[in-house]
Design a protein around this nucleic acid. Structure first.
Lengths: 125, 125
DNA sequence: CAGGCACTTAAGTAGATACTTGACTTTCAG
DNA sequence: CTGAAAGTCAAGTATCTACTTAAGTGCCTG
């Protein structure tokens, strides 16, 4: 993977770091400046600013310069797009799994009880 | 971040690679062996196997050795946990945002039309 | 049981990453 | 105007990562 960085690449990469997730947690409680974001951490301000840049490049965070400070905010839209990618894959798999289960039940075969919970909550069609 | 790798760290890191996301997409359509997963890619089998190891370490994929092949499957549970982390942060932010908006409306102040869509769908209390 | 298939392990490498320190640039307060 | 505050930019460095090739290991098949 040394090539085209998609939005998802950047978003997941941004999320794959505990410091950046911590910044997102802080921002989920309201906007903050770079130095406010840096306070909980031992690292240098420059390090946190670089994290903010990564978050902004990923779209998960938007920022705006206000005088000599920079206001950082979460972008729900970008987070939603990541959530959707995940839930689509998961639902595709779960749907397939449930179909298979119904098929086995129809044939009278027993089903692995380890998974039966996800089967019992389907009332579709 | 050179220290404790949490489940989220590993999951997001696993997701931050297009090849691994491709593997997940393939697995969302059903289980597969390592060499089946490798087919669409130009890389060596060893490379794909390493990706599978990363995915398994993250919990997003579970595998089971069957004879001389290894069957790989998606774990919805692990994906769900990642989805939850994201949606909780997003919802926290959206709730805060909507509260602020209601507050401003109460004072008769205009609201940034760029965001008004998320304001109009709240009828709570 | 010989040979092959499907991984697995190991070692090595080029290219990212996360951090640091230090030098600016802007802005705002006095 | 002066200086401190809040960022920003630029190197430089220690790690990490994704890949590769080469050499196993264990399980079938003929």
């Amino acid at each position: 993977m040394l090539e085209h960085s998609t939005e998802l690449d950047r978003a997941f990469h941004a999320l794959a770091d505990a410091t950046r997730r911590g910044i997102l947690e802080r921002l989920s409680r309201g906007p903050a400046s770079v130095s406010e974001l840096a306070k909980p951490y031992a690292s240098s301000l420059a390090a946190i600013q670089q994290h903010v840049q990564v978050l902004e490049a990923s779209g998960l965070v938007v920022t705006e310069k206000r005088g000599r400070t920079r206001e950082c905010r979460i972008s729900s839209d970008a987070i939603l797009r990541v959530e959707h990618w995940l839930s689509e894959r998961r639902q595709l798999w779960e749907r397939r799994f449930d179909q298979l289960e119904r098929l086995l039940e129809g044939e009278g075969n027993p089903v692995d009880p380890k998974h039966s919970k996800s089967a019992t909550k389907k009332g579709k069609k």
